[in-house]
């Protein structure tokens, strides 16, 4: 059903077929207005971003400690990453697992909550605020909170588990549980995704629901046949942003598993490096070990991964995403 609707009126993202000769005439001048409209970004990019980007690409082929002139190494940083660095591999694998589970989970949960919070239930503004708020609490505060809620002795979560006869779980201290905990904790930050979904739900035309209802569709069919197709551009947005954010996850693991208060200098990798994340490792290499060239190589590998995954999602979703 979704594809049928999309096929009937959907326009592919990459290029859109012009519908008539009249259109073609109107379109001829669109390059200039197009560039004019995007000119703020072009100026900002050239001014603030181009130099740092090119500089960091160059660093990735050098030994560079940020103070002394970079020493050219060719591809040595890249080969060292792939052949010698077990922490790099560990961080890459951990981050991949985190993204693989947290992105779909967060998207699904946020979508469900957006639907629920779009219903006319009493106290709706309060509920919406409550769902959004965890996203703005300082990460140091949340780290302490979770270590209190999740600890094995008197932690609320384990007290609840015990009450229903389940075993107590060492959420943040056992290498087997740190990753599931981090994935579950990501749900707690879905506020912005819910808000974006809610905004998207506002312009789904009611007559589409009415029409579907005339066909005898129940709530689940309505969601499947109307809401999801009509919301598909927003779903795609949240998916791509979710991939970008998950693969660069930094603050939560960094603060929860060390790195914050206290000494010792080590990276925030959790027990047995079980939640050593890519961006955390990158930060450590760059700003604690002063290997900026090596960190830049890591950054560009991560970039290539995120970019190809995002592009894949966009291309793949063209078949499903419905634009007016």
């Amino acid at each position: 059903m979704a594809t049928r609707i999309a096929d009937s009126g959907g326009i592919p993202l990459v290029d859109q077929p012009f519908r008539s000769n009249r259109w073609r005439r109107l379109r001829r001048g669109d390059l200039i207005p197009g560039l004019l409209f995007i000119s703020p970004w072009i100026v900002g990019f050239a001014w603030f971003q181009l130099y740092p980007i090119i500089a960091s690409i160059r660093y990735s082929f050098t030994d560079y400690n940020m103070m002394q002139p970079p020493i050219w190494l060719g591809f040595a940083n890249y080969t060292r990453l792939f052949t010698e660095d077990d922490l790099f591999r560990k961080a890459l694998a951990n981050t991949a697992i985190y993204a693989l589970f947290s992105v779909p989970l967060d998207l699904f949960v946020a979508f469900c909550f957006a639907l629920l919070l779009n219903l006319r239930i009493p106290g709706r503004p309060i509920f919406r605020t409550a769902f959004y708020f965890p996203a703005v609490i300082p990460s140091v505060a949340t780290a302490i909170l979770w270590s209190m809620l999740l600890n094995t002795k008197g932690g609320l979560v384990n007290v609840a588990l015990k009450a229903v006869g389940l075993p107590v779980i060492p959420w943040l201290t056992s290498p087997t549980w740190t990753m599931p905990s981090l994935i579950l904790l990501s749900v707690w930050g879905i506020g912005p995704i819910v808000v974006i979904f809610l905004a998207g739900l506002q312009d789904v035309p009611r007559e589409l629901y009415e029409a579907a209802k005339l066909d005898g569709a129940g709530p689940f069919r309505l969601v499947r046949d109307v809401t999801i197709p009509m919301l598909s551009p927003v779903i795609l947005f949240n998916l791509v942003i979710g991939i970008i954010a998950a693969l660069q996850v930094f603050a939560q693991p960094f603060v929860i598993f060390g790195g914050g208060q206290g000494g010792g200098g080590g990276a925030a990798g959790g027990p047995l490096n079980s939640v050593l994340m890519y961006s955390v490792q990158l930060y450590t290499v760059a700003f604690q070990q002063f290997q900026m060239g090596y960190a830049a190589a890591m950054a560009w590998i991560l970039f290539a991964i995120i970019f190809s995954l995002s592009l894949l999602s966009i291309r793949f979703s063209n078949r499903f995403v419905h634009y007016e």
Binding site: G264, G265, G266, G269, L272, T284, Q288, F290
Partner: peptide
């Protein structure tokens, strides 16, 4: 040693590996 930050990252993990008997 300038390698102290590298040691400092490896060392806690070494202690984990030994005490978890990996």
């Amino acid at each position: 040693s300038p390698q102290l930050p590298i040691f400092d990252q490896e060392f806690p993990n070494l202690i984990d590996e030994v005490t978890y008997k990996k």
